[in-house]
């Protein structure tokens, strides 16, 4: 564990929490892509199957359980409890355009042709593009509430910090995971345009439009 990894994890945790709190406090999930949330839940469900096979640390186990519960909780709030506020007319990104290529890629480019390993690879590739329905929704409606912008910033910052963590681990431990690094770079690049808007607009108190 190094500082980049820790802040990255905390940023991820913070992103999930502000999304849940936003939905809970405003009793509304307007502006949030349910499709991205389903993809994230699928990412956690396919990646954290190792909860049943390996124990790494209490920190690792608790974080995994939190991510799993919170992502399914978010889906419950969006599709059941506050269903009426879900903006489905603007959430129209075709997720099969992500799921099918990601499934094929994970079958071809993986560390080992083994069920758990392929599912892990699938989750890494899927996570890198899972935000696209949300970004598509923001671009379609042409705006995002500040709280949604903070959520996106924290979520994007997390993988960016993981890249610093991988650079640090490469020099200190010789650790290098090509699949995670490439997917992590793709994931961070997808947020770049948003980061620019966030810094130039949202932090100056303007709405993201």
């Amino acid at each position: 564990m190094n500082i980049f990894r820790l802040i990255g994890d905390l940023s991820h945790l913070f992103a999930i929490l502000i999304l849940l709190l936003k939905i809970w406090k405003t009793r509304s999930c307007a502006g949030i892509s349910g499709r991205s949330q389903i993809l994230f839940a699928l990412v956690f469900a396919t990646r954290y199957l190792d909860l049943f096979t390996h124990f790494i640390s209490l920190y690792n186990t608790l974080m995994k359980i939190f991510y799993l519960c919170s992502s399914f909780g978010t889906i419950y709030l969006m599709y059941v409890k506050f269903k009426a506020t879900y903006d489905r007319n603007h959430d129209t990104f075709r997720v099969e355009f992500l799921l099918i290529p990601v499934a094929i890629l994970s079958l071809i480019f993986n560390h080992e042709f083994d069920v758990l390993e392929i599912l892990w690879t699938f989750s890494i590739y899927l996570e890198s593009v899972a935000i696209l329905p949300q970004l598509f929704m923001v671009s379609k409606t042409g705006e995002a509430e500040s709280i949604t912008s903070h959520y996106l910033f924290a979520l994007g910052a997390y993988r960016g910090l993981y890249i610093l963590n991988w650079i640090y681990r490469y020099y200190t431990e010789g650790f290098f995971d090509l699949i995670a690094v490439i997917a992590g770079i793709v994931q961070t690049v997808l947020y770049c345009d948003f980061f620019y808007l966030y810094i130039t607009k949202v932090l100056k108190g303007k709405r993201l439009t």
Partner: peptide
């Protein structure tokens, strides 16, 4: 059997 790589990242 070679040692399995344990994935400690989230």
């Amino acid at each position: 059997d070679e040692a399995e790589e344990v994935k400690d990242e989230l």
